[in-house]
Design a binder for these strands. Structure first.
Lengths: 339, 339
DNA sequence: TTGTACGCGTTATCAA
DNA sequence: TTGATAACGCGTACAA
């Protein structure tokens, strides 16, 4: 069935006729560019109000080449880290007259992004990507401004908003060590040169720094999924006691949640049978009893700064730096027990 | 600074020239409408491939009057109910060639929506609103297809995707009663004729059904925020013991979380010092120890069905019913103790 | 200071 | 089966 196209919306032409001026005059008033006499300006504004005219953004985009729209790409919407980043970005963009298109891409495969680029290149002025952790996309095919959030790009081939991931796991591991733990497990993480790899590195460097030999059996690498956490924790718990870690570092929020799930199922508690420290200050970390020691990232702010950087790029200016590394901090809670 | 407008993208004109045909012919091939000889079709496809032509969606929208875009409005992105609904909707839309614009509106005030309507009426074909709970917007100013998710519209003035909210709190309250509780508190909810009011109603009708007099001191109404939960729970805990509720129903996920926060702060646990039952199967309900008895709603599916209904509307057809009431179920966990 | 007219990339109508 | 061309709504040189 056909959708009528001509809703017979009020156009600039109608306004011009009503105000008794040319459409170019209306345009000038609307965009406040050239000089317009007060009298005509008033006439135009009245006509606009009376007719309830609203600019057709599509038509504007056609001629200006700008859409005033930003595309945001996230792995999914159910992860509260992503939700928070989106929130920060959306508020910033909206306040500046930008509109946000959004798409989720669980896989972050090269070809999925090719599709995205194709579909959105005409629709958005720029793109904001929250990078699922193992990621090697080069994004070279997207020719417009691009900002990556939560990505690790030491080669500085793109603008990025990051935190110091290595430092994060370093601090977590150190915190465990300082509480007397030596058999410390690491759950999740993939040493592939991405942000995830930095977290693994942080664990390793803390161990080395404190002279604790790393035991391969206490490392359960994997993608940043809940299941990685559950499997890892379950595996650790079934190790003979003399090997079993007394404390665990979970590499991100999902793996941390997976760990807690297993503990819950077995009637165990973090900080009692085993200590736990993780990334991101999610609901469960904050309000479970005991709370979980975590690295808290400025999630909302990361979204906001990503948006800010993108708009700077869009305005034709050059942001101060390619990599913006934001502060995160260690939050101590009861999940870490003295040994 | 000026952003160059002519990225000199490949246009349909370029393809036409390269293929040695008229642009109208290229358009026909692309849209597969009229008959085109195999030979010319092949020529056109080759030209498209060689030039890497991609349609300018804006220009298409200008002439067709359709944007193939849907606007989704949510109160915020950090609430995992919203995240899950978005996920369901976005996947459905994307799979059908639709693009999703998104905007968050914490307030759900009439005037904020007026703005939204204005800004997006030219940009989206339809709108999908996840309604913050106390809501009386009539949405009359939005003239295109509209679907409300998680709204209560007995007057059937809009298409809605709902669950039976009254039944939800009824079941939760009943569950507490069956476990021997009689002094049952209700936290959150506003009896304003919206979905929130139905939840209050469910509590009241369960109490009545089981012949338990309702004590006004055990009702802590309020908006669906975390703070309503914390304040309510704190207030209950400070009541003298002979009045204090032995169990509490939290009216939504945030209020439930607020309750748990207070319990955590005081070293108390749901199911021990006080029983707790709530709405929505969030992280904390699932994995805290003990888990929380909740009504689980089919969140992802609600998003999907909302999108489906909207696309049905957009295709010019009429959905089977105005109100789609989806099934939710009670999940029993340790937060409810026998009395 | 204001108006005319062209162009943005596409679809759709009408001829050929 | 194909081609030419008028919209779509707007911004903007350029002319007046």
């Amino acid at each position: 069935m056909e959708r009528e196209k001509n809703r017979r919306d009020v156009t600039i032409k109608d306004v011009a006729k009503r105000a008794g001026v040319a459409i170019s005059t209306v345009s000038r008033v609307l965009n406040g560019l050239d000089k317009v006499s007060e009298k005509t300006e008033r006439k135009v504004r009245e006509a606009v109000a009376e007719l309830g005219y609203v600019q057709n953004a599509l038509a504007v985009s056609m001629v200006t080449g700008q859409t005033k729209t930003v595309l945001m790409v996230v792995p999914d919407f159910t992860n509260d880290f992503n939700g928070s980043v989106i929130q920060g970005a959306e508020e910033y963009l909206k306040a500046r007259g930008y509109t946000m298109l959004i798409s989720s891409t669980r896989d972050f495969k090269e070809e999925d992004f090719e599709d995205l680029y194709r579909r959105f290149s005409g629709l958005a002025d720029g793109i904001l990507v929250v990078q699922g952790s193992p990621d090697r996309l080069d994004h070279a095919r997207w020719e417009k401004p691009l900002v990556l959030i939560d990505a690790y790009r030491p080669q500085e081939d793109h603008y990025t908003i990051e935190i110091d991931n290595e430092k994060g796991t370093f601090l977590l591991t150190e915190e465990l060590i300082r509480n007397g733990h030596r058999r410390i497990g690491l759950i999740g993480g993939i040493s592939d040169g991405s942000a995830s790899g930095r977290r693994v590195a942080g664990y390793l460097s803390a161990m080395e720094r404190y002279g604790i030999p790393v035991d391969g059996r206490l490392m359960a690498p994997g993608s940043h999924f809940e299941e990685t956490g559950s499997l890892g924790m379950a595996a650790f718990l079934s190790l003979p006691e003399y090997i079993r870690p007394t404390a665990v570092v979970a590499v991100n929020n999902l793996t941390c949640i997976g760990c807690m799930k297993v503990l819950a199922e077995r009637g165990m508690r973090a900080g009692r049978e085993i200590s736990l420290a993780g990334f991101d200050d999610h609901l469960l970390a904050r309000y479970s009893v005991p709370g979980v020691t975590v690295i808290r990232r400025p999630t909302m702010e990361m979204g906001r700064e990503g948006a800010r950087t993108l708009l700077t790029l869009l305005s034709g200016e050059t942001p101060e730096r390619k990599r913006l590394i934001m502060e995160s901090r260690l939050i101590r809670r009861g999940s870490v027990a003295k040994k």
